[in-house]
Design a protein around this nucleic acid. Sequence first.
DNA 1: CTCTTGACGCACA
DNA 2: GTGTGCGCCAAGA
Length: 106
Amino acid sequence: MGGSFFDLVYKVVRKIPKGRVATYGQVAALCGHPRNARAVGYALHVNPDPKQIPCHRVVNRFGGLSPAFAFGGEQRQKILLQDEGVDFHGLDTVDLAVYRWEEDYQ
DNA sequence: CTCTTGACGCACA
DNA sequence: GTGTGCGCCAAGA
């Protein structure tokens, strides 16, 4: 680890503050590859440290998790975010306009 | 080594 | 405004 795109992804995701969410494209952009959101998803897929890397805080550009999400159950992810204070706008969609993590805000 | 799939995002018709 | 396809990077078969 160290230098790889994946490691950078984990690093960024780990930096996401509690109660905030980031999009795959945003993380990819922070890694230096704004068009590589796919690799970000894959990086979280291999998620070596789920306890340290809150993948539940990473959502797609719509603010909702992918239907393939299954690191413990979609419901699980929703509960975790709600517990952090994130309000869901619908069934499994968060209000990015409010909870989207901004590097400038950190 | 080549082709396909994938936790995404966006440009084009 | 909507529908379709393509692009980027990586991994699996």
